[in-house]
């Protein structure tokens, strides 16, 4: 019986496994090798050694792209993390219409990325947009948002904070997983809300924060829709995210080998960063099971 189950398990999973090797792992390996060629879709690939990687170091767009990608990645993880955490804390209270509010806050996350970008294109318009109109009514200075080289990334970070629905749900789950008796213990010892928050909520939430930091950063660094739909990478390359630049090279300039080289470097950077975050985990992530450490 057990044997039968294993067989069926493997057989049913085989499509998924095959799919992974065919469509994910295979292309990754192929892309690594193509990074050392001059393949341009047309013509046959020639081995050119590390030529592509050398070119990268002289490529001003690549350098700028690296900077704006990280600027956006780190900024959006922090801003959407904080927004989501505050929203989760508020929605974790016993308030009326709780599920209604949860739905409202979650809604932006299910709006398709393209539709979302188009909405924000309107909100951001300096002349007719809602954001500047509100600022004008409040007699505050207005911004040029995505039409300004220095304001485009902060604008996109703001936009990503709006889409924190998924993170909020994860945080909510984390908050509800905190054992109630811990809070009671603090109360018995005469602790106030701040002590409960600082010494129970935050430490108990660190595994969730950790998960969110890793997944969120990987996701944010791969931002593509915003430059593709909203800014075309501008003004002056200020929103040319790395994945967008890879796409441009591969499918607009037909420089497939070069695009693969960028992908390889970018993969290594994300990998390194993820390892780094994992390495720092023991210093700030709290796991109950490791109490005796």
């Amino acid at each position: 019986m057990k044997k039968m189950e294993t067989r069926w398990g493997i057989m049913l999973a085989i499509l998924g496994i095959l799919g992974y090797f065919l469509w994910n792992f295979g292309p990754m390996v192929a892309s690594f090798f193509l990074a050392f060629t001059d393949w341009g879709i047309a013509g046959t690939p020639n081995f050119i050694g590390i030529e592509n990687f050398k070119e990268l170091f002289d490529d001003f767009i690549f350098k700028k792209s690296l900077w704006v990608t990280f600027y956006f990645g780190i900024g959006s993880v922090i801003s959407s993390g904080i927004t989501a955490f505050v929203a989760a804390l508020l929605l974790n209270q016993s308030i009326r219409f709780k599920s209604l509010f949860r739905t409202i806050f979650f809604l932006p996350a299910i709006v398709p990325a393209i539709a979302n970008s188009v909405i924000w294109l309107w909100l951001f318009n300096p002349t007719f947009g809602l954001l500047n109109s509100i600022l004008q009514i409040l007699k505050l200075p207005t911004f040029e948002w995505i039409y300004n080289e220095n304001q485009v990334i902060p604008s996109l970070i703001l936009m990503s904070a709006w889409q924190m629905g998924y993170i909020m749900v994860i945080f909510l789950a984390g908050l509800q997983g905190i054992p109630q008796q811990l809070y009671e213990a603090v109360s018995i010892d005469g602790g106030n809300w701040w002590h409960r928050f600082r010494y129970i909520t935050i430490p108990m939430m660190t595994p969730t924060f950790f998960f969110q930091t890793v997944m969120g950063l990987i996701g944010a660094l791969q931002g593509f829709v915003q430059p593709y739909v909203m800014t075309n990478g501008g003004p002056n390359y200020a929103s040319t995210f790395m994945v967008f630049y890879i796409y441009q090279n591969a499918f607009r300039y037909g420089k497939m080998g070069y695009a693969c080289a960028i992908s390889t470097i970018f993969f290594l950077i994300i990998l390194g960063l993820t390892i780094l975050i994992f390495k720092t985990a023991p210093f700030w992530v709290y796991y109950e099971a490791e109490k005796g450490r």
Partner: peptide, 18 residues
């Protein structure tokens, strides 16, 4: 194609009056 993208990026700053 690449020259065009460079022109677009630089000229968008000029068209924005920056």
């Amino acid at each position: 194609d690449k020259i065009n993208d460079i022109m677009y990026q630089e000229l968008s700053s000029a068209f924005l009056g920056k």
